[in-house]
Design a protein around this nucleic acid. Structure first.
Lengths: 342, 342
DNA sequence: GCGCTTTGCTAAAACGCTTTAGCAATATAA
DNA sequence: TTATATTGCTAAAGCGTTTTAGCAAAGCGC
């Protein structure tokens, strides 16, 4: 194993001090370095294949240049929810630009041992983007109050943690209103996740609002909980199929869950949209390729990631340009799974 | 912002030296610490909410406890290939157990600026799992020869880098042989990725082998390149539909690509499997939920991730139990998309 | 009471960088 | 010519750990 070369080595090779090496390599302004010296250092660094040790830099500079994306889910499910992929793309794009790296952190909700402060205190990360926080994440609030740099995707009521989110309630209303407008009077719902997630609760509320506005009765039996995976949708829709009388449409508050549900419908010989209209939520990349293509709510996942990363970096730099509470617009994408007027 | 507490602070609070703090907290054997002192240190650490600074530990210990998963793809596509999700799960499970963390590193093939050695030399990571290396990744070989700890998922011919892989050629043979056995005589192929990826090339070779074995002619027009995404499949299948005479079956060497292709078939009113039989590759979680459910080659993605992580950790510890070349078994999963005998 | 071992702890160096303060040499101004 | 500014660099401290070497006190055998 060839030994890594250090700033010392470069300094010696170039006949200067490590200080000068640091100045040259970091392009420090205001430090006068003659062009010849600069070239010599650069040359030495290149021939020695020098790369500064990031840990040493962290120590010296007091920052890590790593930001963490924490997914408040089991590791098994963390990667299952497809919309997170677009989010990651958005985050990646700004992060790279600013010289940060992304650390991926699945953090199961039941993991209660001071995980956030651990993450931050151990200086693994400069800041955190937390996706899908639960409603009662006291530890997160505490960490933020202790000075941790945090941006939420979603929100925690009553906290002052900056967040970027969509209007889940209004978006769900759009989805269900579409179904109602098509003439459906008995509409089921499969939630995206358990109800301790704010997004689930809000989407369910949106569903109820539309029923009320259209004088449709609310039937608890038509509410089934999903849990982010196709599997959960596959199971959930079976529950719905047991209900009498059968709904003619279902709003599934997650495309990923909807994929599983649609398969179960197919297996049961129930045709979408003729026998059962379906509207999803998220507009994952695959939604357009499902058979039949899925009517859904377009959630600007890429922008969500982009915005969150921007907010976080601003926060880290104590440089607040934008508002610390951003709500992004969604829109209804009508494809085939919702069918036509009854 | 409440100041982070350091080992110094704990030492002072417990009335001992930082050395003792370190001994207690790391449970160093052979160092005699009285139970009372130990308790005092532990107590102080708890009340001060002490967490060791990971960078400082890295410096002192010379290791980072982070391993990198590098995806040899554009960041845009890195998350699109769904099978990688299962791989990540497998990796995560061993990594957690061993106290490592996962750093996610999309590394575009065109990114030629010494990226691997940069990663390793900057000490961001202790080791690397490289997914889908291209055939001619000299830099990777060089990094390995320089002592970097690397495990490949896939392989590079002629290098001695440990790898874990499947037999792509044989697996593709299974897929195409299934189609041939059903009576198809004109079978197309959409590759999973461009042909500079070893897996693509091998799968194509498997396809050719079966044609030959069954005395079926090889027609270049029936070979279209996919590129890991549903979009690429959507486009690729249209190429195939222009060919005269039309194939009656197609082997799509990636389920993710197949999803897009199947949608295009649907849009063109071509029924799967009656008008066109389809066999995929990977057996992503969704394959079972596609309509119609996808016949495919089950690739043990989880085990792949698990095995790779294990091999890497052994390599890091210079503790070679298992072989450094592992081939995992695949199997054909027959669902509906391949249909019945013609 | 003398040497020897064991116990329980600590001092100090090391890891590889950044950054502040400052110094010598040269250039400029008066 | 002397005072002052500028240029081009470096010494050394500091970041928060781990770890090696070693020291004082206590215990033990004789």
């Amino acid at each position: 194993m060839i030994k890594r070369s250090t700033a010392q080595d470069v300094a010696k090779a170039a006949g200067v001090s490590p200080t000068t090496v640091s100045f040259v390599l970091n392009n420090i302004e205001g430090m006068r370095i003659s062009p010849e010296t600069r070239d010599r250092v650069l040359e030495a660094a290149r021939t020695l294949n020098y790369h500064p040790d990031s840990s040493a830099q962290k120590m010296a500079r007091g920052k890590t240049s790593v930001i963490g994306l924490v997914l408040r889910q089991n590791p098994e499910k963390a990667y299952a929810d497809l919309f997170i992929q677009d989010v990651m793309q958005g985050i990646s794009s700004v992060i790279r630009e600013n010289g940060y790296q992304l650390l991926f952190i699945p953090l199961p909700p039941e993991d209660k041992e001071k995980s956030y402060s651990k993450l931050i205190n151990e200086r693994h990360v400069d800041g955190l983007i937390v996706s899908g926080p639960t409603e009662d994440d006291y530890e997160l609030v505490e960490a933020f109050n202790d000075g941790a740099k945090i941006v939420l995707m979603g929100k925690i009521l009553g906290s002052h943690i900056p967040f970027i989110d969509i209007d889940n309630q209004k978006s769900a209303e759009m989805a269900v209103a579409h179904l109602a407008a098509l003439g459906h009077e008995r509409i089921g719902i499969i939630t995206n996740a358990p109800l301790n997630f704010a997004s689930s609760k809000d989407r369910l509320q949106g569903y109820r609002n539309v029923l009320e506005k259209n004088d449709l009765p609310f039937d608890e039996k038509l509410v089934v909980l999903g849990d982010r995976t196709p599997e959960s949708g596959y199971l959930a829709i079976q529950e719905l199929l047991k209900v009498e009388p059968l709904p003619s449409a279902v709003f599934i508050a997650s495309d990923t869950v909807a994929l599983g549900a649609m398969n179960a419908l197919y297996e049961n010989g129930i045709h979408v949209p003729d026998d059962m209209a379906v509207v999803g939520f998220d507009d994952i990349a695959l939604a357009r390729y499902v058979i039949p293509p899925l009517t859904t709510i377009h959630l600007p996942a890429y922008s969500l990631g982009l915005g969150a990363a921007n907010m976080l970096i601003q926060q880290i730099n104590n440089d607040f340009k934008e508002s610390s509470e951003i709500i992004l617009q969604t829109r209804l994408i009508i494809r085939e799974s919702s069918g036509r007027n009854l």
